[in-house]
């Protein structure tokens, strides 16, 4: 399958918040009720369409356990997007967000798009973190925010796709240097690597300078 762009994502957050479940729901449309501790990292991929363009998402699901923290750090540089996940039924996972964010900001490239996700929205009766608190945290730190459920699949597609949209817009604005692979973005094989302008294509996105040339 050919693609216009390839984005690399990482999923981070405390253990048990549902990172692996979010990925599985996104790639396989399945839910896994048992906690299968991630060791190190696991890889998953899926194709999405934005603005009529095929975009390949390569996603690295990291281990939330403290012992794997240094391994996780190896994945920040080189990721274009990150899903930072907490569990709305466990306040401590929300409290740890600052640490996660500091780690991410310190080790990633400055343009990395971070999406804050409050997962397990299906467990509203056991909620410990209000939706507004998540929104406030996101606003304060310049993140996009969303509540999801890996179980019911609510907002899962949106979480991954909106992150991609954000990255895509940054590319259109010329913020990302797409020729530098360390940013976690690659251009599809048949698309010219030197003229990012050409990629704006025929889609009506008026913003980008220099439309489709040929």
């Amino acid at each position: 399958m050919s693609y216009a762009y390839l984005f690399k994502y990482i999923i981070i957050g405390d253990t048990g918040v549902g990172k692996s479940c979010l990925l599985l729901q996104f790639t396989d449309k399945r839910f896994q009720p048992v906690h299968d501790l991630t060791i190190g990292v696991e890889f998953g991929a899926r194709m999405i369409t934005i603005d009529g363009k095929q975009i390949k998402l390569q996603i690295w699901d990291t281990a939330g356990q403290e012992a794997f923290r240094s391994i996780t750090r190896s994945y920040y540089r080189g990721a274009a997007g990150a899903l930072l996940v907490y569990d709305i039924t466990r306040r401590e996972t929300f409290n740890h967000l600052t640490t996660w964010l500091e780690d991410a900001r310190q080790h990633s490239n400055s343009n990395m798009v971070i999406m804050l996700i409050g997962n397990k929205s299906d467990l509203d009766s056991r909620r410990e973190v209000k939706r507004e608190e998540g929104e406030a945290f996101a606003r304060e730190h310049g993140l996009v925010f969303m509540e999801t459920s890996a179980k019911t699949a609510a907002n899962v597609e949106e979480a991954f796709i909106n992150t991609a949209k954000e990255i895509y817009e940054k590319i259109q604005e010329g913020v990302f240097d797409i020729n530098n692979e360390a940013n976690g973005i690659k251009i599809g094989p048949q698309h010219s690597p030197t003229s990012p302008g050409g990629l704006a294509g025929t889609g009506g996105q008026g913003g980008a300078q220099g439309g489709g040339c040929c």
Partner: peptide
Amino acid sequence: NANIQKIVAFENAFD
């Protein structure tokens, strides 16, 4: 070492 293998792959080793 599977962890190193994965990081190396993530760092675009195959390319």
